[in-house]
Nucleic acid binder design. Sequence first.
DNA 1: CTGAAAGCGCTAACAG
DNA 2: CTGTTAGCGCTTTCAG
Lengths: 362, 362
Amino acid sequence: MATISDVARAAGVSPATVSRVFNSGRVTPERAERVRRAAAELGFSPNRVARSLRIQRASVIGLLIPDIENPFFTALARGVEDAAQRTNHSLVLCNSDEDVRKESRYLEIALAEQMAGVIVAAASRRRTDLSALAARGMPVVAVDRRPRSAEVDTVLVDNQHGSAEAVAHLLDRGYRRIACVTGPAGASTSEDRLAGYRAELLDAGVAEEWIRAHTRHADFREEGGYAAMRELLALPVPPDAVFVANNLMTVGALRALREAGVEPPEFGILSFGDVPWASLVRPPLTTVHLPAYELGVAAAELLQERIAGSGEPLRTVVLRTALRPRSSTAGPDPDDWPAESPAARRDGQDDAPVTVRRGEDE
Amino acid sequence: MATISDVARAAGVSPATVSRVFNSGRVTPERAERVRRAAAELGFSPNRVARSLRIQRASVIGLLIPDIENPFFTALARGVEDAAQRTNHSLVLCNSDEDVRKESRYLEIALAEQMAGVIVAAASRRRTDLSALAARGMPVVAVDRRPRSAEVDTVLVDNQHGSAEAVAHLLDRGYRRIACVTGPAGASTSEDRLAGYRAELLDAGVAEEWIRAHTRHADFREEGGYAAMRELLALPVPPDAVFVANNLMTVGALRALREAGVEPPEFGILSFGDVPWASLVRPPLTTVHLPAYELGVAAAELLQERIAGSGEPLRTVVLRTALRPRSSTAGPDPDDWPAESPAARRDGQDDAPVTVRRGEDE
DNA sequence: CTGAAAGCGCTAACAG
DNA sequence: CTGTTAGCGCTTTCAG
């Protein structure tokens, strides 16, 4: 592996000059050209490790997510990556697996690797501790989940508003016994989504007690959603609709519904968070769309400003969600359902069949 | 940030001793204890950048995948991560986006960052060039896709056998005009899966010409599968079943089928590669299961052996696929379909409904 | 077993 | 504009 000195020798200049050529220092064009040629010939590319050690900062940013198999977080990661690429940062993706211990290990690595900064979707609101990083001057941005110590820039979606809107939609469609499956008690997303749900029901005159009895905390995973839905269905007063606080749990909930022979939209189901491959799901699911990619972009941009040395006060960016009504919440009464659900057709999932010639031969 | 010298001073020893404490060097227990205490007090953690520069190797392994939004690759990534963790390697995930230019950029970064090794699911069989890495002594393992230059250890699934088995299944169920949607011509996976399909059909006496007319190359993405399926349906002799070479394209193909008013299993559809959230898809899809996680684990283990200095000859590990028959290939003739598909029930997706009390109250 | 010293490859003063 | 020089934090000979 050629070093900067090899190139310097080959080009007949000093190492410093070579360095300058690769770092927009001032070098006469003629010399610069000579250096570039020599570098190309030797197949030289600067050693980033040495560079990082010298300037006390790597050109890598870390992204810490709690579940790499959740499409929401992979979309977010793409957003971060695309934005990072624009400033020549490369991305290190770490999967904390919703495990605070793994997470803190990765956080330490970020420090030890002298990463330029990190973006964190925290595993826990209470137990994720970002203060150590901030204390050592590492730029940090929290995304999706708001950690307790609010000493960092933050990018969120408007969970509470989005949830309230979703529940309002369910009420509007005629559901009256709306249950809720939310995430773990520790996470800000769980709490905010639950809060939106509660606020809307209380506003509609539903008893505090009823709400509490029809709320379940689960783990944001498929199995948790499945178990919670089964519990709800087994209640003495089972619900006629459910608001599920994330996409994976919705998959589980749907499975539970199917097993129980309960079919939407007679029973309403609404997912907070997009369900990938939505076009395959029958009936088409009403969802609250989350701008995952945009969340990633915004977080990366905030981080880059900090890396560049912005001294502005802390900022919190809140992105809006969008309700996407489809057939799974058409209403409890079959008489109300349109023959071809106009709600579903709106986003092209249910285009009218077209006929095709088939099988004239063979 | 405390350095090794700070700790040395605090503990009254030399920097070398501190280093030895953290690297299993021989130090008297008493001194070691003193060092550890001092380190803890100062919140010292070794600077990995300096370490990497000195020993000319980082403790990071790179994983290069072509599509981070494809569940197959995220499952693979988890396998790599779990295996890497066992040897204290951290994982850097890079998404080449099926783009050879991005990919080669990341490959250069791997070199410049002095990563311990890289695992590559190549974007292109022909144009992905791993020889530069291998030439500079960087351990490399190819996974899922076999790059042209076979100078590296490789972990694959048995694409050709899996495909042949899948097509045999379709023939067995009574389909006679089986089309194929495969991936880009450049990828080894496309070619191997296509080869398995062709071999099986030729063996069944189908004309070479017919096969060629009913084969489409697409891009391994949803839109590609959609377009290809539409083309196939518009043929003068449309197929009565389709073998789709990856999961994402299957989603697109299903959409095209639906739009055309064609419903499985009258029209058979089989996906090479698991479709996540399969439980939501109606009808349940017959798939060829791919051991994605295990692929990742195997690749990481191979890589770790190379990193540890194994001088063994190059190895290729081939993992088996498994056909998972479900209702989408029950056969072209409705008379053959079981009332409750036993094939589908086999993996629990179609458990019989159970009744549940509902709505006695409000 | 322990310490002194050199140096991994690069960048940033500083002089020229 | 260019070269010389020192040093980022760590590991690793080499003496002791």
